[in-house]
């Protein structure tokens, strides 16, 4: 791509570094900005700069926050004794959109994968263990991806909690989200593993609410 202005070129290159954005899309976005009012573009860049420099991570659950504690943790209406363990902030947003969960979260920041150089120390696992002990957590819900690394992470945390506080951990209910046939999915196209698991963990009809 040939540019007559190095200012334009620099802007395109910066946009192209974003995930899912190629050179052509980057050029389209930059040319769009070029057509906008100078003030609008300044505001745009300020919002982004401010977002990055001022955003904080909740000291309790590591979700994004405006202050030291995120709005979910600060909300007294939410059940503080219930923690949903997720891999990243996107998962928090996904679960929040369901409007079905009223507890708090704990964002691990990834899953254990020695192959990628990610061990328990790189994740917010220690803080979770401390939290569980301090806050008298009653239920821990694991909402991690159904991968081998996700399973490794669940088993590891479970073991760690059991070892950390023998008598208290007895009282914690540890669960994982259900896995099975997707809504709107068809049985014949479900893979055998999913189908087998759905059969193992089948539900009584009275608990089955189709919406």
């Amino acid at each position: 791509m040939q540019f007559s202005s190095s200012l334009l070129e620099n802007a395109v290159n910066e946009f192209a570094r974003l995930p899912g954005i190629g050179k052509k899309t980057a050029l389209r976005l930059v040319l769009h900005l070029l057509k906008q009012d100078t003030n609008d573009v300044s505001q745009f860049s300020e919002v982004i700069a401010k977002m990055r420099s001022e955003i904080k991570f909740c000291q309790r659950c590591f979700n994004v926050a405006d202050g030291d504690i995120c709005s979910i943790c600060a909300n007294s209406m939410r059940r503080q004794e219930m923690i949903c363990v997720v891999e990243n902030i996107r998962d928090v947003i996904a679960i929040e959109s369901t409007q079905q969960y009223s507890g708090t979260y704990h964002v691990l920041g990834g899953v254990i994968s020695p192959l990628d150089g990610i061990g328990p120390d790189q994740l917010n696992i220690e803080s979770l263990a401390n939290r569980v002990q301090k806050e008298r957590t009653e239920e821990l819900i694991f909402a991690l991806n159904p991968t081998i690394q996700g399973d490794t992470t669940i088993y590891y945390i479970q073991k760690k909690l059991a070892a950390a506080s023998g008598e208290q951990s007895q009282n914690i209910r540890i669960t994982t989200i259900a896995r099975g046939i997707a809504f709107g999915g068809e049985l014949e196209y479900a893979d055998e593993m999913t189908l087998a698991r759905s059969l193992q963990n089948r539900l009584p009809v009275e608990n089955y609410v189709s919406r």
Partner: peptide, 12 residues
């Protein structure tokens, strides 16, 4: 040596 992580992988 995180032996507890090793034991988790062993089980898996």
């Amino acid at each position: 040596k995180d032996l507890s992580l090793l034991s988790v992988l062993d089980e898996q």
